[in-house]
């Protein structure tokens, strides 16, 4: 098993480096791109850029400097916000985004999985239809529609929630709901279909034939197997939450990384865009790695296939 993990970790690091390299060359090589002199750039920025990036040096040297900077977590100065470093922005915004992302994840797990299981156990009964209907809405209605609905109804009409910011702790509710909406519904549907599939399996019949109590069959034999596909979804779920945060943070005016990212896009702040992109990519790859490792720990078949022979 150790060999499997090592291979994956090395692959992850290589991928991150590859992406950083590709991003670098994309930024530098495309005509009309940010680092060519075709775009008018304020003097002070040009000075700092030249200082930082030595734009007159050959590309390879620039690349080397860039990669060196990456390893020391120095992503350079912001292209449009004078005097700010990209890393500063990331450190300022990441905690907020992470907090909201974490809350959203908790909501998804605490509600999605049980609802999916209940739906499966009471298949085709009213509660199943209700849950499935809501879940279908949740996966089809985009997060920004949900977010704006929440603002209009709960802030505008009812005044229960603040319409922006998180100074008021109630301000977390709207963003968390909007952010978790899609994934929560997806997990509910996935858990339900997985549970239904598992309940059809022969080994469930064997457990019953051996006299295991029904509740134990459900809770132990069925659920453990049913959760396996759900665990594989965690990777894409991270991606969904990440990209969802751009929109949600913007709509709710939250001081998170996603909001800064969107701002940097609007302002064409290229260094920030590049830096945050590489950061997101790296974060995502690491999360996937963690998921893969936990997946191997849950499903013994994977463990033994890849591993210690």
């Amino acid at each position: 098993m150790g060999k499997y993990f090592l291979k994956r970790i090395v692959a992850a690091i290589l991928t991150i480096l590859l992406i950083a390299t590709l991003t670098f060359f994309m930024m530098h090589s495309i005509p009309g791109g940010p680092f060519t002199r075709e775009r008018p750039v304020p003097e002070s920025i040009m000075e700092r850029l030249n200082e930082k990036y030595n734009l007159d040096d050959p590309l390879i040297v620039q690349y080397y400097d860039y990669m060196k900077g990456l390893v020391t977590f120095d992503l350079g100065p912001s292209f449009s916000i004078i005097g700010r470093d990209v890393m500063e922005l990331i450190s300022a915004g990441f905690p907020t985004s992470a907090k909201i992302g974490l809350f959203a994840t908790i909501v998804i797990v605490i509600f999605g999985i049980p609802f999916g299981i209940i739906s499966a156990l009471k298949q085709n009964k009213p509660i199943d239809y209700t849950v499935m209907f809501m879940a279908t809405l949740g996966v089809t209605v985009p997060s920004f529609v949900i977010a704006t609905l929440i603002i209009y109804v709960f802030s505008g009409l009812l005044g229960w929630l603040p319409s922006f910011g998180i100074e008021n702790p109630l301000g977390y509710i709207g963003p968390v709901i909007a952010l978790s909406g899609y994934s929560l519904s997806f997990v509910t549907r996935l858990t339900r279909s997985s549970m239904l599939e598992v309940l059809r399996q022969d080994y469930i019949r064997t457990a019953r034939a051996n006299g295991i109590k029904e509740i134990t069959v459900m809770a132990r034999h069925a659920v453990k197997n049913a959760l396996i596909p759900v665990v594989t979804y965690i990777g894409p779920m991270m991606a969904a939450i990440m990209t969802g945060s751009f929109v949600v943070e913007r709509i709710f005016a939250l001081p998170g990384m996603g909001g800064y990212f969107v701002e940097s896009i609007t302002n064409r702040d290229y260094t920030t865009i590049m830096g945050i992109t590489v950061f997101y990519a790296a974060f995502y790859i690491i999360m996937i790695l963690i998921v893969d490792i936990s997946y191997a720990m849950i499903d013994p078949r994977i463990r033994f296939e890849k591993g210690a022979r």
Partner: peptide, 14 residues
């Protein structure tokens, strides 16, 4: 007690 036809799928894999 009862035993079934397909042993490949009749035991809980986890």
């Amino acid at each position: 007690a009862m035993i079934f036809q397909d042993p490949m799928t009749s035991l809980n894999p986890v």
